[in-house]
Design a protein around this nucleic acid. Structure first.
Lengths: 220, 220
DNA sequence: CGCGAACTCAGGTTTTTCCCTAGTCCAAAT
DNA sequence: ATTTGGACTAGGGAAAAACCTGAGTTCGCG
């Protein structure tokens, strides 16, 4: 009973490693590799594999979204999520997306073997590493990133102020009004801080602001 | 850092075996053995152990009930359930009872070691054998998390896709190009998903996408 | 078969952003 | 004392994006 597997991960090296690893298992056949979610869905639909080994963080169409769609296009395919994230925000979503397993990327090879065996028997496999998240669905991970924090220090006080207001969702005009400045000045600050951070789009700024703790992702 | 453990199981031979096993771990001290739930609670209250290794099926007061009462009488004690049952009826009850781990009796010795290590680090441990049950429960109670996941489910697949690309910082045109759509179509999707989420600025969308795990704040 | 929802797109208007330039102020370097 | 440079301010004009309105297609469902 050869297990037919499709591999989806946006990092080439990771894919290659996994492929090699999987092919060392006598009962596993790697049908295809994909580097993005859209491609993965296409191939799953075409090949109807037994297992889709799926990374969560992929550009364009992420793994969670892929997992949600798989049952519709290939009902017999079991999704085994391969993630570097152990946090509840990923774990709970993935489990609800109907996956059959959740493996952590730094798990031992034996765990991959265990997971595949479980899937082959129609059972599920959850990595022990995510036990914590499973138990506490609602847990906050307010961890800081000291590396990105130094980036923040490259900005002037004024720029940080503008950045925060921007990330909070205030329009340029509102910011100008609040700070008693011309809208043009605010634009200017924004442009300059973008240059410094080498981030040239608003979403990037927002992600940065969240990463360094300037704003929180969960404010209403 | 010796780990102080109390053992509760109604079978004498099982207790003896576990005691011997636990004592083979240098960092574990077995404080007491109990053969029923009532006795277990008394000893836990008196000794405030680090870990209560607890069988579920016990006469008088079963393990689930014991687990529920432990936090009140010894808040620092972590409950590690030791059960022969992998079915959802036991698993879900135990997890709701606030245990820190769930081991099945035919697990390997290494698993016990893993579980104890996890507890020592303040983390949880769930035996892979119960993954199936955990997953079932997750899907059954999929009506939870109204502030995040259900919001996301209000969007169509296409809208989620657009939202993700948007939050990743791609310009409208890029998104259109990648999806082989007109820029106008992308605008239309964006506008509609904004209405559905009742979020009317890009930073807000990005924060939302991060909150629900569509994108990660720390991607380059 | 109609109906609604999802998906698609265009034209025209308004708003925002982007790029370039430029002035003032102040502190540090020369 | 003069110059240099960073921070802060701001305008004009071009470019892009967003907004509004309207509309065609498809697809599943009652």
């Amino acid at each position: 009973m050869a297990m037919r597997v499709i591999l989806a991960d946006d990092h080439q090296l990771v894919r290659a490693g996994l492929r090699s690893l999987l092919q060392s298992f006598a009962d596993v056949t790697v049908l295809a590799e994909c580097s993005d979610g859209r491609d993965a869905l296409k191939r799953v639909e075409a090949m109807q594999p037994d297992v889709l080994l799926l990374d969560i963080t992929m550009p364009g169409l992420n793994g969670l979204e892929v997992a949600r769609r798989v049952p519709a296009i290939s009902p017999s395919t079991k999704v085994l999520v391969l993630s570097m994230h152990v946090g509840p925000e990923y774990v709970t979503q993935a489990l609800r997306a109907g996956v059959s397993g959740y493996l952590i990327k730094d798990a031992a090879v034996e765990e991959l073997r265990l997971a595949l065996d479980a899937l082959a028997m129609g059972k599920a496999y959850l990595s022990p590493a995510i036990s914590q998240s499973v138990l506490h669905e609602f847990m906050r991970t307010g961890k800081e990133d000291p590396d990105a924090d130094s980036q923040l220090q490259k900005l002037t006080a004024r720029q940080r102020e503008i950045l925060q207001l921007l990330a909070e969702g205030h329009a340029t005009r509102e910011i100008a009004a609040r700070l008693s400045l011309s809208a043009k000045t605010v634009e200017s600050h924004r442009s300059q801080l973008m240059d410094r951070l080498d981030i040239h789009d608003v979403p990037g700024l927002v992600r940065f602001a969240i990463r360094v703790g300037l704003v929180s992702a969960d404010l209403v």
